[in-house]
Design a protein around this nucleic acid. Structure first.
Lengths: 122, 122
DNA sequence: TATACTGATATACTTTTGTATACTAACAAT
DNA sequence: ATTGTTAGTATACAAAAGTATATCAGTATA
């Protein structure tokens, strides 16, 4: 079995290249026009496909399908199929997905401070 | 004078749409293939154009120039021209730009926890 | 029998983003 | 006179990301 190449927070912080690579991993999980709206939509409740589609009014089924697949592949979202008629499919955030809200909160905090800081300079 | 449409952390958290929009503002500032490497390169010291280019080996001057302009426009980077021969131009993070490291640290932390969480599930 | 619901997929297209490669001005040193 | 340094720009192209629109299978209801 191969040794997993896990890096500690301290190691990554010490090396600029490792730091950028590791942060980039996180960034890639939420990159793309629709990932954040989808995560936002699932942050407080499970939802079904059509439900999400209604919630994010301008998304096409093609994009929703594709982005949900990406999120599932990246361990952000769990997909459950129920054998009803017609079938229903439920999407929900994984534990790790829910934890992302800590990051989003920090981003929100910085975004607000940044807007104030840049407006102040005009 | 118009009223600035500043939203508080509490207000943004309470409304999913405002939340997504505000987080997206932050995300847009660091989006693109080269923004993070550039910010990383400037995180601990000022640097000149050619200096950054050497630091990020695969970036073309076209992209470096473009991304630096974006970052400057967004209030992330300050550009200072020195009238030497040949001229030298120094790039450095603004105060707000430096504060972004708080966000990046959170992303790093989450990224590491997420990698461990998803590997554990195999 | 026709229509509607579920959760998608197929095809073709446009827009955005990034790359490759060559080039510029202004001056200095060789 | 040629070469090197600075900090970029110009042009053309390739690749990635996103959009528009139509369609599918299976079942249920009118």
């Amino acid at each position: 079995m191969e040794t997993e190449n896990i890096i500690s927070f301290r190691e990554a912080k010490a090396c600029p290249i490792q730091f950028v690579l590791a942060v980039n991993d996180t960034l890639n999980v939420i990159s793309g026009k629709w990932k954040l709206p989808i995560i936002g939509s699932l942050l407080f409740e499970k939802r079904r496909f059509t439900d999400i589609q209604r919630n994010i009014s301008k998304i096409t089924p093609r994009m929703l399908s594709k982005e949900l697949k990406d999120l599932e592949m990246n361990g952000m979202v769990k997909r459950t199929v129920y054998d009803t008629t017609p079938i229903t499919v439920e999407y929900e955030l994984t534990e790790s997905g829910k934890l992302l809200s800590d990051v989003l909160d920090k981003m929100l905090e910085w975004g607000i401070q940044h807007r104030e800081a840049t407006i102040a300079k005009n």
